[in-house]
Nucleic acid binder design. Structure first.
Length: 424
RNA sequence: GGAGAGGUGGGUGAGUGGCUGAAACCAGUUCCCUGCUAAGGAACCAUACGCAUUGCGCGUAUCGAGGGUUCGAAUCCCUCCCUCUCCGCCA
């Protein structure tokens, strides 16, 4: 949520900034709504005030033993006016609220302009794609050859876009998650958290998935429905919702390993082969809760933590700054980390690290007490994958493959694989 | 699943229809006194929103959530959510 006061005071600037994200801010609708809201609110509060004082007068008169009948009659009409004004105000505020809740976060001034993936700006590269003496296979061929990846069975059990992983590959998958968790906890100072995989609508509103992106989620039936988390960002960030943190408690660095569930509505036909894009995948998620002045630097650190995983796995990658049109709803600035996939001869997203500034904090009422003002103010929240486990496994398979279809185990994963050197 | 108890400000905890946005205590902040690994005294100390704005300010809402009764609700009624205790079941 953008600061409503700011939207009001700097409407032109807000509209211009949102345009960078390809969002058309309906200025005239907003201004009309806002003008009406102001009128009705003032009117309503006057009526409330009037009735409050009359009610107090009635109380006093009654205590003094006076006849209150005339006073009761005089307030009758006022009561109805007040109720009508309150109803009108409630409707207007709901409208205004949903208007504001539908506005994406402002992109930072440094966000590259552009509308699609090709407009993203490469920031740096690490490592060199290996030259293979043979035609490198993709993870599907490799996995099926090793009898470790099975998409047909998964489709029989569930649906398309699911996978069954078996044997040493399943262990590799687990090893990757464990390795990432250990790295972030032991070397990067994160607090590990185990969190619910089902969350309510409030939590999803807080991080920005609702109300606009419900079709991307799996919802459980019920009067107060729960949703499967699309990312641990949702429960992990909401750990501080409706909370006022002391300055000394910040920064918080949280790491969660969870499955993630996405309906992938609207991505029919994209990445249908293999386990690049699944309805269910595991991810190790990094979340920072920081003081506002620290968030810019925190994004660099968080991104570095995710990169460290790839460096230790010796997987070539590049970091890109997302252009306005490619950025998410809640983000003010996003780095994507793309790992090299020999099977596709392309860099593919394996992590997305965003600074949402106070956008999520405002929605979820996550605040800290600023010692300088003594007042509760929104914290800044950041999140990033560190990393997507399924895609990391794909990257290991494809980059560590050998001519015979076997896969070498990366050095850092050997302890997690019981010393296994090669998956064959 | 069955039975019961309860949800009030950072914490403990009063408050069953009328200056109660809320006593008291603890924690916290500032000041005074005192001079010594301490104690005592005073003041301040919820959040959001609106209007006004040089400054002091004024108003509205909020006592788990939502409805209802009433001139007036933390207080009465209804629904829901959550927590705790006992029993059952269960990993």
């Amino acid at each position: 949520m953008l600061d409503p006061k700011r939207v009001r005071a700097q409407t032109d600037e807000i509209a211009a900034r949102l345009a960078v994200k390809g969002f058309k801010f309906d200025q005239s609708t907003f201004e009309a709504l806002e003008a009406r809201r102001r009128d009705i609110q003032v009117k309503t509060e006057q009526l409330q005030s009037e009735q409050n004082s009359r009610s107090k007068a009635i109380g006093k008169a009654k205590a003094a033993g006076e006849d209150i009948q005339p006073l009761l009659q005089a307030v009758e009409d006022l009561k109805q006016q007040r109720a009508a004004a309150e109803d009108e105000l409630r409707v207007l505020q709901a409208e205004l609220n949903s208007f504001l809740a539908g506005l994406p976060n402002l992109p930072d001034v440094t966000v590259p302009e552009g509308v699609k993936e090709e407009d993203n700006v490469e920031v740096r590269r690490w490592g060199n794609p290996a030259a293979f003496a043979f035609e490198p296979r993709d993870h599907v061929d490799l996995g099926e050859g090793l009898k470790g990846l099975d998409f047909e069975t998964a489709a029989r059990l569930a649906h398309s876009r699911f996978a069954v992983i078996k044997g040493p590959l399943a262990r590799l998958h687990r090893a990757l998650a464990q390795f990432m968790l250990d790295l972030h906890v032991s070397e990067h100072g994160y607090t590990e958290a185990y969190v619910p995989y089902l969350v309510n609508a409030d939590a999803l509103y807080g991080t920005g998935q609702l109300p606009k992106f419900e079709e991307d989620l799996f919802r459980m039936d019920g009067e107060n429905p729960l949703y499967l988390i699309p990312t641990a960002e949702v429960p992990a960030t909401n750990l501080v919702s409706d909370t006022i943190l002391e300055a000394a408690e910040l920064p918080l660095q949280l790491v969660c390993h969870t499955p993630c569930f996405r309906s992938e509505a609207g991505s029919y036909g994209r990445d249908v082969r293999g386990m690049i894009r699944q309805h269910q995948f595991d991810k190790v998620e990094l979340v920072h809760i920081v003081r506002p002045e620290d968030s810019e630097q925190a994004l660099e650190r968080l991104t570095g933590h995710a990169e460290k995983v790839l460096q230790l796995l010796e997987l070539p990658y590049r970091v890109v700054a997302l252009c306005g049109g490619d950025m998410g709803f809640s983000a003010a600035f996003t780095y994507d980390i793309e790992v090299w996939l020999p099977g596709q001869q392309a860099y593919r997203e394996i992590s997305s690290c965003s600074n949402t500034r106070d956008f999520q904090a405002r929605r979820m009422q996550a605040r800290w007490r600023n010692p300088e003002t003594g007042k509760p103010e929104p914290v800044h929240t950041l999140n990033g994958s560190g990393l997507a486990v399924g895609r990391a496994m794909i990257a290991v398979m494809e980059n560590y493959q050998q001519a015979d279809g076997s896969i070498r185990v990366p050095e850092v994963l050997k302890p997690y694989m019981g010393g296994l050197e090669v998956i064959a």
